[in-house]
Write a protein that binds this DNA or RNA. Structure first.
Lengths: 196, 196
DNA sequence: GTCTATCCTGACCTACTAGTAAGTCAGCTG
DNA sequence: CAGCTGACTTACTAGTAGGTCAGGATAGAC
């Protein structure tokens, strides 16, 4: 049951994930992954029958990891504004090594994706929006956040803003650009202590 | 000087543009374009030597069209909030036929683009940010807009928000989703007439 | 009527794509 | 030690990618 010494499937996913985040699902090949790991293309097909299955495994693992990260944020004893900032930091960490959010990238490639991948990408967005909406509601109830629209609509705008900030900032390779946008998206909702 | 009867280069650009907006720069081929226009691949190479040159022409034309659209918005006698809403409407029009903003899509593919395309994509973002920043400043001066950060930072967040809203809304094929995000991004800056 | 430039086709090329078939071999298992 | 299995390999496939080239059609100029 324990992880084998080499864990080839895991290493394949690691390389493929990075390639997709950097170049898109149509911007890498089995040969790219095989070359980088110094194994044969056939070995990839042994572990993942086709690109569709590899893609599925990729987005599934990414989704689970994100869920775990959100659960870890829930476990921290911080207020809603801090929770939103910690959430944005997760994105900043992804951005730092010149990667786009995996699901943001796959949203761009959406028209060319096999159906199972599409379903999983949409679920990723749904989950994130639901999590954000819950934090927003909690913040509003606690008086630490203020906004006029339904929490889900605000959540969607925030998710779109963060994904878009990654997308547009990446050509500039500028983390500060991303951070500034993230800060504005969040601070616009935070109740200033000097306020009413 | 007049447009020839058939305008093959223009029709090539039309088809290629739509394919890039739907599928990404690595998600279409010369064969796709040729098939759709019922001409040979060689005819494409006659008008555009390679995919890099086709891509350049694509983003160049898109950039010029956008500049024209912005100039048309400038010419209208409306206040800053209305100008921002009209700007967002330009994006909504692109989104309506299931397309992503060309440069947003190319930002996703950025790592795989030839240099001239990269330069032109970045210029597109720079131009849009500068235009938005100018409108924001005018609105602030006129008292119709209010915001705490530098106008350029707000402009960047707004551009990122609109691009991200297109990106994330597209899997849902839901124009309302995009509209809601656009409205929130803009209304958050608009000075309510009932306000101080 | 023929010259010429523009626009295009058919036939081709090489490199690369995802995917397959068959075989190798270390390390269990009984 | 025989037999099996998991994890690969090498060598291949059909199909597609971008790209080239010689030549043909057509329209206008002379």
């Amino acid at each position: 049951m324990e992880r084998p010494r080499h864990d080839t499937p895991g290493r394949i996913l690691d390389v493929a994930e990075r390639l997709v985040q950097e170049r898109g699902f149509n911007g890498f090949s089995y040969a790219d992954v095989a070359k980088e790991l110094a194994i044969s293309k056939a070995a990839l097909h042994y572990h993942f029958p086709g690109k569709a299955e590899l893609g599925e495994a990729l987005v599934e693992r990414y989704g689970v990891r994100f869920e775990d990260a959100l659960a870890a944020l829930d476990a921290r004893d911080i207020d809603a504004p801090q929770r939103l900032r910690a959430y944005a930091q997760v994105y900043a960490d992804v951005f730092r090594d010149e990667r786009m959010c995996l699901c943001g990238m796959l949203a761009a490639d959406y028209a060319t994706l096999p159906d199972p991948m599409r379903t999983r990408v949409v679920r990723f967005f749904d989950d994130n929006e639901a999590w954000l909406a819950r934090v927003l509601e909690e913040g509003r109830a606690a008086g630490t956040l203020r906004f006029q629209w339904p929490a889900l609509a605000v959540a969607r705008t925030m998710l779109a803003g963060l994904e878009g900030a990654m997308l547009v900032s990446r050509p500039y390779g500028d983390l500060k650009r991303f951070r500034a946008a993230a800060a504005m998206l969040i601070d616009g909702l935070v109740v200033d202590r000097a306020d009413a």
